[in-house]
Nucleic acid binder design. Sequence first.
DNA 1: GTCTATATCTGGATAGAC
DNA 2: GTCTATCCAGATATAGAC
Lengths: 198, 198
Amino acid sequence: MKRGPYGKGIERREQILDAALRTIAARGYSATSIAELAEAVGLSQGGLLHYFGSKEELFVAVLRKRDQSDLAAAHGPAPAAFVEIVRRNATVPGLIELFTHMQAAAADPRHPAHHYMLERYRLGTEGFSRALREMQEAGELSADLDTDAAATMFFALADGLQARWLIDPSIDMAALLEQWWQRYSEDTSINSRPAKRI
Amino acid sequence: MKRGPYGKGIERREQILDAALRTIAARGYSATSIAELAEAVGLSQGGLLHYFGSKEELFVAVLRKRDQSDLAAAHGPAPAAFVEIVRRNATVPGLIELFTHMQAAAADPRHPAHHYMLERYRLGTEGFSRALREMQEAGELSADLDTDAAATMFFALADGLQARWLIDPSIDMAALLEQWWQRYSEDTSINSRPAKRI
DNA sequence: GTCTATATCTGGATAGAC
DNA sequence: GTCTATCCAGATATAGAC
């Protein structure tokens, strides 16, 4: 809450992002043009674009804001906390839709979402992997598990499930993630089991 | 190879799809308008649209054609064969890009890709799951594995990895899928291992 | 900082001739 | 079946006034 125009600008920006978040959540991605967004925010198209250079940059900012709120809401032990975020996201399909569209668009290195996605993958897997290593050190997790690979899989699986869930909501994303983790994290080291089943 | 205008129309359609496949593979999705496509095919825009009602329907037809050729090229035991398809797809990023865009767009039930995706999920998981059950009956796979869930996970993981790989080609999709399968398919039934690690 | 107005303009879809 | 020509819609981005 700084004073002066600089602080106010930032504050206004956050207000706009909040409104955009709500609008996309309610209307979905495809139904949302910057005109719609501007109206929902109570601003003109030009006024909106004053804060974010382009539609795509605005969308990326919205995703960043969601990540922020997801992270703030996360708590508890590592794998469960991440599953919890997915469960939480499932209440807001519009934002998942936005994410999948941005993820597809981010294949182009010049797209504003490209850097965002790279950063998200890096931070996400680093955090997840670190949490797993701590579990290993505490003896709560099999030491032979490749934590980096597991983290990469988790995010790919979560993203893939989300994309599919939008099309076919019959699947239970959180349950599948839990099921995956339960089975995948089982101890498979040589000491813990015979080489062959009897 | 039927005779008459009907057969010829179908044949022409296939030619067009082949050309479209190559063009998208080479240029990527975003760079491909129907005008570009028409040019590559050696047809006018109107002529192209005579065969496919709209851009989206054409794209879906392209995906169907790729599936067809993937399936024709697949061979060998179930999980490995599917990984092989992913490995093969990795040589054609443009088509993966097309797929991820269509997957995102398919969230809208009115989009032509919606039905395609639903069908693909259904056929894919059915086939994968059936193959796993056969392995179980042959005693090659732990009987306690939920084959439907495993199949759903496989496709979600593969799709998620592909979307990420487009943005960050440093990951090895096929290796991660194999690693997943190897660990996930391990026998975890009570007979095969002690309850707790020593 | 915000609005109005406008510049483009890309691109998909259509109509009708040949 | 294929082409030409055109239309039209929708959307973004920009310029300049207040």
